[in-house]
């Protein structure tokens, strides 16, 4: 085996891949959140539709889309390999175990949280990405040009209470996943120092609350604004 494949099939090498792809996916979350904040603009969706058109057609974004898919694939694949290996290490379980006395729930359940996020992601992609790319949304004229009216697709989806619930639950899972995952990724990369680690941990906690809260605010906003009120 070459040194390269030996490194990346070792336990630490695989962890490294999960960490690097995880942090890359965090950067995607930021871009996705900031772009989607245009839903709140109150301009009938004009800027959101122009932004969606740009994201679907710009060659740089389309290339990054492939990198993003690879990021998800590697993150999930490596985590799956590690989880399966880790599960096989203890063939006989403890009859009586109290892990809650020595560790956080979220850190012990990254696989479960990741699976919930994956299910959410499939629902989310099917509803928005698939319909935007391959469906036939209505056209809407903005400043003389016709755009796909994705804004209406979003707004109408978020009028369904069960759909809003799926989104909120998905974001709660994401929050717990990030709460452990963000600072854990730095630890796996070996980036630990008494000057920086406390700041990384604080920022990780902040990130794990603000990002999912921002995403969850979108379905809640349209549901409360249009259905409840």
């Amino acid at each position: 085996m070459s040194w390269f494949s030996k490194t990346f099939s070792s336990s630490i090498g695989r962890k490294l891949l999960v960490a690097v792809t995880g942090l890359f996916l965090c950067s995607f979350l930021v871009v996705h959140l900031v772009g989607n904040l245009q839903l709140f603009k109150g301009d009938g969706g004009a800027s959101f539709n122009i932004y969606s058109h740009f994201m679907a057609t710009n060659p740089l974004i389309r290339t990054m889309e492939i990198v993003l898919v690879l990021g998800f694939v590697f993150h999930i694949y490596e985590a799956l390999v590690l989880t399966r290996r880790n599960k096989s290490v203890r063939p006989v379980q403890y009859a009586y175990n109290r892990p809650q006395d020595n560790s956080n729930w979220s850190s012990r359940n990254m696989g479960l949280l990741g699976t919930v996020i994956l299910v959410f992601l499939i629902i989310h992609l099917y509803n928005f990405f698939w319909r935007a790319r391959f469906g036939e949304p209505n056209m809407i004229p903005i400043e003389g040009t016709d755009y796909d009216d994705l804004y209406s697709v979003v707004v109408q989806s978020f009028h369904l209470w069960w759909y809003v619930l799926i989104y909120v639950l998905g974001q709660i899972a994401l929050g717990y996943h990030l709460y452990h995952g963000f600072s854990s990724a730095f630890h796996t990369l070996g980036l630990n120092h008494k000057k920086y680690t406390p700041a990384i941990q604080k920022f990780g906690a902040f990130f794990s609350i603000v990002v999912p809260a921002g995403f969850a605010a979108m379905p809640l906003y349209f549901f409360i604004k249009d259905v409840v009120l």
Binding site: L16, N86, R108, T188, G190
Partner: peptide, 27 residues
């Protein structure tokens, strides 16, 4: 198995070996 930075090891260690060592091992 492979570490997932849970920290139960350091919490249960009778001599208090710190989790920082694992970051150093990775590095």
């Amino acid at each position: 198995g492979a570490c997932t930075n849970i920290g139960s090891c350091a919490a249960e260690c009778p001599v208090g070996i710190s989790l920082e060592n694992i970051a150093m091992l990775n590095r």
